[in-house]
Amino acid sequence: MLNRRTLLTAALLSASIAFAPSAFAQDKSIIVASTTSTQDSGLFEYLLPLFKTKTGITVKVISQGTGQALDTGRRGDADVVFVHAKSAEEKFLSEGFGVKRHPVMYNDFVLIGPKSDPAGIKGGKDVAKALVAIKDKNASFISRGDKSGTHAAELALWKASNVDVEKETGGWYKAIGQGMGAALNTAGSSNAYVLSDRGSWINFKNKGDLGILVEGDKRMFNQYGVTLVNPAKHANVKKDLGQSFIDYLISPEGQKAIGDYKINGEQLFYPNAEDTGA
């Protein structure tokens, strides 16, 4: 029976088991704060084992929205941030929290909607026109609303379309404050439009009646950048291990691996580390 001695033993035992990995982890592991879109696309599950085989470094990924991931970096709780919202990343750098941002790859956003397409935007090449049509028809639109990179990209597209979604919130425009998968689930169950990164969309299992309606507009390209958290701000940052991860991502080998990642024959990410302006 659970007497006090067994309880105490169990507590000490489990505490020692639980604390052990964190002690080990000092050696060869880093924490990367990244976005739900990279996580949901399955890229990490493909890429990290390759990196581990090569270097012996375990990468622990926390997937959050871009804003939250950068905050995790600001607090010093991650060694590397790997996100996709250039202006937010540059702000992070200018505040002194990051060492240097390296462009890694891009994918693109796609405008998803129900097959019935109440706004009649299917096949269009101009995303701004499509968004205006959605607004004019009062068709439902689901926004991530979670300060993620995708959310930032979506807001930029609305701005380009001259639609002030602040005013529309609560009507046809619904901000759910959740990750990509949740937003797609919500759109699927409420016949709504939603902006998604292509990787999350391809990997999404509950597509139901949803499909890609608008794609290929240059404004929908989604650039990923990787930044080492500044060890001068947080002494605990594993500078060398984190840098090896970044070096790998932008090396020819890492870039090729990223380009080779495919789901159902479709390439999800386009490596572009050499494009230093990206």
Binding site: A25, K60, G76, D77, N236
Partner: peptide, 17 residues
């Protein structure tokens, strides 16, 4: 437990502990 928090030096955030 955050590195910026009072117990940050323990390095326990994002661990089973």
């Amino acid at each position: 437990l955050s590195r910026s928090g009072p117990l940050g030096s323990w390095g326990l955030l994002f661990t089973p502990a």
